[in-house]
Amino acid sequence: MTPRNITGVSEFLLLGFSEEPELQPLMFGLFLSMYLITVFGNLLIILAVISDSHLHTPMYFFLSNLSFVDICFTSTTIPKMLWNIQTQSKVITYEGCIIQMHFFTLFIGLDIFLLTVMAYDRFVAICHPLHYMVIMNPRLCGLLVLASWIICVLHSLLESLMMLQLSFCTALEIPHFFCELNQMIQLANSDTFLNNMVMYFVAVLMAGGSLTGIIYSYSKIVSSIRGITSSHRKYKAFSTCASHLSVVSLFYCTGLGVYLSSAASHSSHSSATASVMYTVVTPMLNPFIYSLRNKDLKRGLKILFQKKTINKPIILRLKKYP
């Protein structure tokens, strides 16, 4: 079959996980539950940070941005998958596939940058506590988030424009539950050398550079904590980093596991299953990791729910006496 320009193709097929009909209701219920937990959990963190003035600090500013990105991240892939399961269809339009790939690339990049910025925030807080509020001023925090958005938007736009230059066969089956950049490049019939070069170069630059920055920050943090004489202060310093370190470990370990498992097994279905860990499970667990042992965030959630209770209208029922 000779390749022709993709403009002649109107839709792709997302193969997903399993074609067995009896598993479809179970998968729909499972992913719907995980999606709702992710959305409401991260939304509660955002509302708690807004409600409590004590949480108007750089740490929680970055956390609320991470929660917003996680909501968008899961919303890029899961609703379409749920719709396909419900309608028993695997179809996604070409335009929809490009848009999904664009926003997936955008939000996964933002996740990487925000985790790096949060590591830098913890580094300044523990290694330079006296200058923390001067260094991490609102202007710098805003610039860090803005720069992350600009870089990630430009990167995802570049990948999308390069994808539009590729040609495909008339029938395309994507062995995944969403349009992933790597899967799309592998299915193209035209020369993908430049696409692969850009994809791997950016992956090494962004993910590798981010991980290097995080490791460097925590090496300095560990050195500073070891120099603290008080055990109480040591525990307090470590507890401020424990949640972020857990999220970073979960994100990078699951992401690395996906690519290692797919490279070892050469199975697209196993890669799709492993991708659930960093695309669905990690954003779902983030609110629990940050809130379970965080007293400040628990207080913010308590204030949020108290405001909701107070704002409820009070209805007085008056008895009418003759």
Rank of each mutant, 00 (worst) to 15 (best):
Q86W: 15
S249R: 12
C127I: 09
M284Q: 00
Q183W: 00
H54K: 06
K312W: 07
L14S: 10
A242M: 09
G29S: 05
D191F: 01
H102Q: 14
K220V: 04
P129T: 04
H56R: 01
M206P: 00
N182H: 04
A125R: 03
V202N: 09
N65V: 08
G109Q: 13
C253E: 07
K298Q: 14
F62I: 04
V222N: 07
L260W: 07
F68D: 00
V222E: 14
V49E: 01
S33N: 01
A188L: 01
Y252H: 11
Y278A: 04
L13C: 03
C72S: 12
F123H: 10
S224E: 08
Y94Q: 14
L304I: 07
G96H: 10
K80C: 09
E173G: 11
K220Y: 10
T57K: 00
G300Y: 01
L146G: 05
I78L: 15
I150E: 08
L14G: 12
G109V: 06
S291T: 10
K80G: 06
L301W: 08
L14R: 08
F177C: 14
V145K: 07
L161G: 05
D111A: 13
H244P: 05
K307V: 03
V117C: 06
G142V: 04
S271V: 02
F68W: 01
L32T: 15
F178D: 09
Y216I: 12
L13A: 08
K220A: 09
T77F: 06
G209C: 04
T87Q: 13
L36D: 01
I303Q: 01
L146K: 03
V198I: 14
L158P: 11
F238G: 09
N182G: 08
K90Q: 15
T105F: 00
I310K: 13
T116Y: 06
F193R: 07
T254K: 05
G213S: 14
V49D: 02
T74V: 15
I150G: 02
T93Y: 00
F107R: 07
L106K: 09
P175L: 00
F28E: 09
